[in-house]
């Protein structure tokens, strides 16, 4: 192991560039899957006929196959039906599909945890169904959902590493470029330790924030 040789300023900068790609792709996918997952979760909670059954099947299928398969599928198989995506777009699409399905379940069970009486109270005080949902049920449910949502975000950030298989220049990829250099063998362990450390710092910080929020609201 050669820590000094592995952690030169150039290498660190290069790894950081990779991590920024990871964070960017994960960030976009988080926003998209929060929106789409929220919509799906709400539609299923509201039990809108047909639509909610179709979504239930889709969610169940997506949740039960590996994300890696979805990534491969988006990048290698979709072009066969005319949908052509760059590695970045494919990574964002695959992550969004998978995490939307996961988040929709979190959000649905969060909504279900709010007592049905509240919905009835809202309705009888003259609010429409959508208004009741938006002003009364959702704000309470969101507070309860914060910890599981954040842990889903942490999963997403970790999962972004899988996009290395479709040539996305993210953290894992840039790490492998460093140890593919002549004489790079002794960099392998130091690089892996550093990459693990970078993920840990960001994810651990997120989980602490989630715990704080949980304490505040309960």
């Amino acid at each position: 192991m050669d820590f000094a040789g592995a952690y030169t300023p150039d290498h660190l900068k290069f790894l950081l560039e990779g991590f920024l790609v990871t964070l960017k792709v994960a960030g976009i996918a988080i926003v998209l899957s929060f929106i789409i997952g929220g919509l799906i979760g709400t539609i299923r909670y509201a039990k809108i006929p047909i639509l909610s059954q179709i979504l239930a099947i889709l969610v169940e299928l997506i949740r039960n196959v590996p994300l890696l398969l979805i990534i491969f599928f988006t990048f290698f198989a979709l072009p066969e039906v005319g949908i052509k995506l760059t590695p970045t777009m494919a990574a964002i699409t695959a992550l969004t599909i998978f995490e939307s399905a996961m988040l929709s379940e979190v959000i649905r069970s969060g909504l279900n945890s709010i007592h049905k009486g509240q919905l009835e109270a809202g309705r009888s005080s003259g609010l429409s169904y959508v208004q009741t949902l938006w002003h009364i049920v959702l704000p309470q449910a969101l507070r309860r959902m914060v910890p599981p949502i954040v842990s889903q975000f942490i999963s997403l950030l970790k999962d972004t590493s899988l996009a290395v298989v479709i040539s996305l220049s993210e953290l894992m990829h840039n790490g492998s470029v460093i140890y593919a250099q002549p004489g790079g063998d002794k960099f392998i362990m130091p690089i892996f330790i550093l990459i693990a450390g970078m993920y840990f710092v960001v994810n651990y910080a997120l989980s602490i924030i989630a715990r704080r929020l949980e304490l505040k609201t309960t």
Partner: peptide
């Protein structure tokens, strides 16, 4: 805490 917060791939 450590192993929950790093990717399986690494």
């Amino acid at each position: 805490e450590f192993f929950r917060n790093i990717p399986l791939l690494i």
